Computed example of a mutant assay.
Amino acid sequence: MGTREPGEVFGPRMTLFADVLSVGLATAVASLPVVTVPAALSSACAVLRGAGEGQPATAGRYFAVLRRRLRVGDLAAGAIALAGALLCAADLALAGAGLPGAPLFAVVAGAIGAAATVVGLRACARAESLTDWPGAVREAARDAVQDAGGSGLVLLAVVTAALCAWMMLPLAFLAPGPLALALTAVHVRRTGMSKS
Rank of each mutant, 00 (worst) to 15 (best):
R4T: 14
R4E: 11
R4N: 12
E5Q: 13
E8D: 15
V9F: 15
L16E: 15
L16S: 11
F17N: 01
L21T: 05
S22L: 15
A26T: 05
L32G: 01
T36F: 00
T36G: 05
A39V: 14
L41R: 04
A44P: 10
A44F: 05
G50S: 07
G52W: 07
G60F: 04
F63V: 10
A76E: 01
A83Y: 03
G84W: 00
L86V: 15
A90Y: 10
D91Y: 10
D91Q: 12
G98R: 03
G98Q: 07
V107Q: 11
V107K: 09
V108R: 08
A109Q: 07
I112T: 13
V118T: 10
V118M: 05
L130E: 13
T131K: 02
W133M: 07
V137R: 02
R138T: 11
E139G: 11
A140Y: 05
R142G: 12
D147E: 13
L153H: 09
V154S: 00
A157T: 04
V159H: 01
T160P: 02
A161M: 06
A162V: 11
L163W: 10
P170N: 10
F173S: 03
A175N: 10
A175R: 06
A175E: 08
P176K: 01
G177N: 08
P178I: 09
L179N: 00
R189A: 13
T191S: 14
G192K: 11
K195H: 13
